[in-house]
Design a protein around this nucleic acid. Structure first.
Length: 703
RNA sequence: GGACACUUAGCUCAGCGGCAGAGCGUCUCGUUCACAUCGAGAAGGCCGAAGGUUCAAAUCCUUCAGUGUCCACCA
């Protein structure tokens, strides 16, 4: 063996071996309860990032652990078409050629997206394999597969028939760059400083940040309690405006905050959510002045055709010229919505869209968690989950995009929110709705594997995805889609900043896997990572865990390459399991009991006892989702107890200690396998062992 | 405006009623003898502040202060 561990000689070889041996496919045993994880399908927008690597590391850890425990274990991989996200990414590619999607037309554009999907879909699979993901690739799903489209259609129709889907004209969030409606969750609010203009409307003055929407004003409003303006309420004022004289009436409404600005507001029902509601209460005209392309329309007179930003500047100039601006507050800070995918400022607009009625779906979803049918880890997220569901609003599901699931109804051009299809993931991947029945005496995947066991994902998509899967699962299948939700935190840079390409602080997981080994990368994501908490990651940490892989390698080298000629080996110890025989050729001694009676060496006893404690602690930690704890325990045991202390103590009685060395090391490798699959397989194969692969070895049991 | 989390060694973080821990960093020593991607040892902490509960508090309760995150129609 080389002096230094070289993962490049190891990883590919074993992945190929595992995949070809069929170990990733579960054996259906009707008498056993399966262990199932539906992998959160990465968006086909690009490469895997550290968040994906974390997901893969945790889930593969759970999957390998349960497989070794003997559960029929299924991990369903896949990729998400990611509607708006993918469309935006491909549009960005096009813009490099100086083109927009409209230059290509719908058919040609969709062809480009499909090319993208082919390329990145394959790349994502390859990257998952590089990370050691032991998923059942024969069950891989893409959220636009034909059978998945069937599932989406079926879900839509069932909701529609129960009147849980409806079409209505509402105030919605509009992205004028993507030219589509967005759901509330897809709007990211950010504080920003904008000038607050105090503008004269006849005898009154009001404060606004949006003078360019004034062409859509259909009233002025004050609070009914506000004595200052009582005499104006009910009057129609003659005012001088940028487009000449006009008339506007003054109304009173509770929604007006008398402490804001002057206590008077302009009501623009077409372009502000509060104003829209005031308008509904007072029967005001909804006068749209901004078009869906983000430009002012003919109602803006000479300002028609300008973008919102241009119009704001020009309207203010005109107002100033006419002496209609009383003052400008330059320090006004407010929060402005931006498109989650392209960062364009979101415009409130009134538009006819499809919605899902959420209250009837939310109630059972709340109950399922309250009754403990679904457990969320860490528990504090249950409260966040309840709060969101208890105050839920209807979900806008139509999108004016080209890439996505077509709404299956006559005359509909729109596609569905990508999260609508994702919400079906745990059961649509298992054959729902068409292949749910047994055939030829064999249970269907849906019957055997559904509901799934664990949903493991980042807490940032608790609302987007997890709660919607629970609602859809309960409504469409009558069952919870999974029984445990495990939420991990976000990976941040060493300064605690979010990683992003523009900041240049991104750590590429695949690059790290190449440089230090997949096992080191995976371990670096598990150790020191507490459930639900963000974690800082730096290259030196990965390096440190590369050192750990090298430590394991050299323990192996010491035990295997440097074994004395007269050493007895584990495989030739007589035991209840074994006969005398050659190395690796017979059943081998597997229990502490077969080793201990052979001698009463104090160090042997101690290390075996510590191994036993470690086995127990690691198993307990894994059962309670304390992965960091399990990893830490193993790190401490193998390095400091086993290598530093025990191995040192055997140097003057090496031949005698050999079977204990082999036994303890092999067991440690088995415990480490779910965390570090590659190096553990490589070393395990070189030790006396039983069976074809460590990944199907029996999980060690504490005595 | 609500809700939640965090504050422990120089740094990053575990621990969450019973003698303050790890990794990295620092300092001292050690290269034939598995590994310098290493080993032996050392220094380093009023566990954010103030009250309270308890035989016992980093850990439970209250208040406060910083930091961060999420939610909410701040015109």
């Amino acid at each position: 063996m080389d002096k230094v561990y070289d993962q490049t000689k190891v990883e590919q070889k074993w992945y190929k071996f595992w995949e070809e041996s069929g170990f990733f496919k579960p054996k259906i045993d009707p008498n056993k309860k399966p262990y199932v994880i539906a992998m959160p399908p990465p968006n086909v927008t690009g490469e895997l990032h550290l968040g994906h690597a974390l997901t893969a590391s945790i889930e593969d850890l759970l999957i390998r652990y349960h497989r070794m425990k003997g559960d029929p274990t299924l991990w369903i991989p896949g990729v998400d078409h990611a509607g708006i996200a993918t469309q935006v990414v491909v549009e960005k590619e096009l813009s490099k050629e100086g083109k927009t999607r409209h230059d290509l037309g719908k058919d040609e554009f969709l062809k480009r997206v499909w090319e993208w999907v082919e390329k990145y879909g394959r790349r994502i699979d390859a990257q998952h394999k590089k990370l050691g993901v032991s998923a059942d690739w024969s069950r891989r799903k893409f959220t636009l597969d034909p059978d998945y489209q069937e599932a989406v259609k079926e879900a839509f129709l069932r909701l529609y028939k129960k009147e849980l889907i409806y079409k209505a004209e509402r105030m919605i969030n509009w992205c004028s760059r993507c030219e589509t409606v967005l759901s509330d969750l897809e709007v990211v609010y950010r504080e920003q400083k904008d000038p607050l203009y105090y503008i004269k409307y006849g005898p009154l003055t009001l404060a606004t940040v949006r003078p360019e929407t004034k062409f859509g004003d259909t009233a002025l409003a004050v609070n009914p309690q506000d004595k200052r303006y009582r005499k104006y309420v009910g009057q129609t004022l003659e005012i001088e405006d940028v487009l000449g004289k006009s008339q506007i009436k003054v109304i009173e409404d509770e929604a007006v905050d008398p402490k804001f600005g002057t206590g008077v507001i302009k009501v623009t029902p077409a372009h502000d959510p509060t104003d829209f509601e005031i308008g509904q209460r007072h029967n005001l005209e909804i006068r749209q002045v901004i078009d869906f392309n983000g430009k002012l329309n003919e109602k803006a007179g000479k300002f028609a055709g300008l973008t919102i930003a241009e119009a704001r500047i020009q309207v203010v100039q005109e107002l100033e010229k006419k002496g209609l601006i009383e003052k400008v507050d330059q320090n006004y800070v407010h929060s402005v919505g931006h498109c989650q995918r392209c960062d364009t400022t979101v415009e409130p607009m009134v538009s006819l869209q499809w919605f899902v009625k959420m209250k009837p779906l939310a109630e059972p979803a709340i109950e399922a968690v309250k009754r403990g049918e679904i457990k969320i880890i860490p528990k504090r997220f249950e409260k966040i989950y309840f709060q969101w569901l208890e105050n839920i609003k209807d979900w806008t599901i139509s999108r004016q995009l080209w890439w996505g699931h077509q709404i299956p109804l006559e005359g509909e051009e729109d596609v569905l929110d990508t999260w609508f299809s994702s919400s079906l993931w745990p059961f649509a991947t298992l054959g729902w709705p068409s292949s749910t029945k047994a055939s030829e005496g064999k249970p269907s995947d849906y019957e055997y594997f559904y509901p799934t066991t664990v949903m493991e994902t980042g807490y940032d998509i608790l609302f987007f995805w997890v709660s919607r899967m629970i609602m859809m699962g309960l409504f469409l299948t009558g069952q919870v889609p999974f029984t445990t939700v495990y939420l991990h935190g976000l990976i941040r840079d060493p300064m605690g900043q979010k990683m992003s390409k523009s900041k240049g602080n991104v750590i590429e997981p695949l690059f790290m896997a190449d440089k230090y080994g997949t096992d080191a990368l995976r371990m670096s994501l598990i150790i020191g990572n507490t459930p639900g908490k963000d974690m800082r990651l730096s290259e030196p940490k990965i390096q440190g865990l590369r050192n750990f892989t090298n430590k394991l390698w050299n323990i192996g080298r010491f035990i295997i390459d440097f074994a004395p000629d007269d050493a007895k080996h584990l495989s030739v110890i007589p035991s209840e399991h074994s006969e005398r025989g050659n190395l690796n050729s017979r059943k081998i001694a597997t229990s502490v009991a077969t080793l201990l009676p052979r001698n009463d060496n104090k160090n042997d006893k101690e290390i075996l006892e510590k191994l036993n404690q470690t086995t127990e602690a690691v198993t307990k930690a894994l059962e309670s989702f304390r992965f960091h704890d399990a990893a830490n325990t193993l790190y401490e045991f193998t390095w400091h107890q086993f290598a530093d202390k025990y191995i040192e103590s055997t140097k003057d009685r090496r031949a005698e200690a050999q079977p204990v060395l082999e036994y303890v090391f092999r067991t440690s490798l088995e415990l480490l396998h779910p965390f570090m699959p590659f190096i553990t397989e490589e070393l395990w194969q070189r030790l006396p062992h039983d069976g074809k692969s460590i990944m199907i070895a029996k999980w060690p049991e504490a005595k």
